[in-house]
Simulated assay, not measured.
Amino acid sequence: MSIHETAVVDPTAELDSSVIVGPYAVIGADVKIGAGTRIEPHAVVSGPSTIGERNMIGSFATVGGAPQDMSYRGEPTELIVGNDNQIREYASIHRGTPGGRGKTEIGNNCLLMAYIHIAHDCRIGDNVIMANVATLAGHVQVGERASIGGLVAVHQFCRIGAYSYIGGVSGLSLDVPPYVIVAGIRDRTRVSGINKVGLRRNGFSRETIGNLEAVFRIIYRSPNLLLKDALELARKDFPTCPEVARMVEFFETSKRGVVRRTEED
C-alpha cells in the first residue's frame, strides 16, 4: 500500500495493500477500496462506499458524498463502484437515498470524464461513457455501452437504453430506447436512427442491425399505427431476435414515456 504522507485516511477505511493514495487525498469512514485502485491527489472518497478493483479516481473528484436531496437526514445509504473504471478529475458521484434504492451503483469499465455528475440512486451499466460535464439527476438508469455526450443533462427517473448514443448539449426528460441515436433539448429532442456505427463496433451482425432498422421504421415511421400496434407488429415480424424483444420491452415498460420525435417531424 502506498499512502502519501499528506493524505488523510479514516481508521475505519479498508484499503487493499496495493491501493495508491495520492497527496492530500481524503478517504472517509466506512470506505472499502479494492486491489489496484489509484486515488489521485486531492480526491475525496466518502462512505459508506465500496470501490472495486483497478479503478482510477481523478484529482478533485468527490465520490460517495451525501445525496443532494432535501429529505436526506444522514441515513446510512451507499455507493457501489465496480472494477476498471476511470472517474476523472472533478467528477461528483453521490450515494443513494432511503426513499430511493438506498444505493447508487456503477458497473465495470466505465469512462466517466471530467466534471460529470451522477446523482443519488442512479444505476450505471458496464462500459458506459459519459463525456465532460454530462449530468444525471437522481434515479437515472443507464444501460450497458451507452454513450452520453458532453454537457448532456438527464432528468430524474429517466432511462437511457443500452448501446444508445446521446449527442452533446442535449437535455432529456423522456426515456431513450436502446440502440438509437438521440440529440436535442426537451421538445426539440429527436431520434435520428439506429446507432449503426456503435453496434458494428460492438460486434453486432449485419442481420441484427438490419432487424433493428426495420423495427425503427415500424415504430417511428408508421404514422397510421398506434404505438401498441407498432410494438405488436415488431414482435410478430421478428420473433426470434433478442435485440428487437429488448427494444419492444423497453417501450412497454416505460413510465416517463419514450422519445418519439424524429428529424422528419
Rank of each mutant, 00 (worst) to 15 (best):
G58T: 03
Y72N: 05
P67L: 03
H4T: 08
E40W: 15
S18P: 08
S71K: 14
I93F: 05
L15S: 13
V63L: 14
I93R: 02
I87G: 00
N83K: 00
R38L: 09
Q68C: 08
E14F: 11
I80T: 00
P48H: 12
P48L: 13
A43M: 11
D84F: 01
D16H: 05
A25R: 05
Q68I: 08
I33Y: 07
P23Y: 15
L15Y: 12
G65W: 00
T6E: 11
H4I: 15
I51N: 01
E89C: 05
V19L: 03
D69P: 07
S71F: 09
G74S: 12
I3C: 03
D69F: 11
R73N: 08
A35M: 09
E14T: 10
G34A: 08
E53N: 07
S49M: 07
V21P: 00
A7P: 00
T37L: 06
L79T: 07
V9Y: 10
H42K: 15
A29S: 11
I80C: 07
H42D: 10
M56V: 15
E40C: 14
A91R: 02
A61F: 04
A66S: 13
V9F: 12
V31F: 05
G52H: 03
R54I: 08
E40K: 14
A61I: 06
T37H: 02
I20A: 13
G22R: 13
N55D: 00
K32V: 15
P41Q: 11
V9R: 11
I27T: 04
R88C: 03
M70G: 01
N55L: 10
Y72F: 09
P23R: 15
S17Q: 08
P48D: 08
G58K: 07
Y90F: 11
G47R: 10
I27F: 04
M70L: 15
Y72S: 04
G65T: 12
N83R: 01
V44A: 12
D30M: 07
L15N: 12
N83Y: 02
N83L: 01
P67A: 02
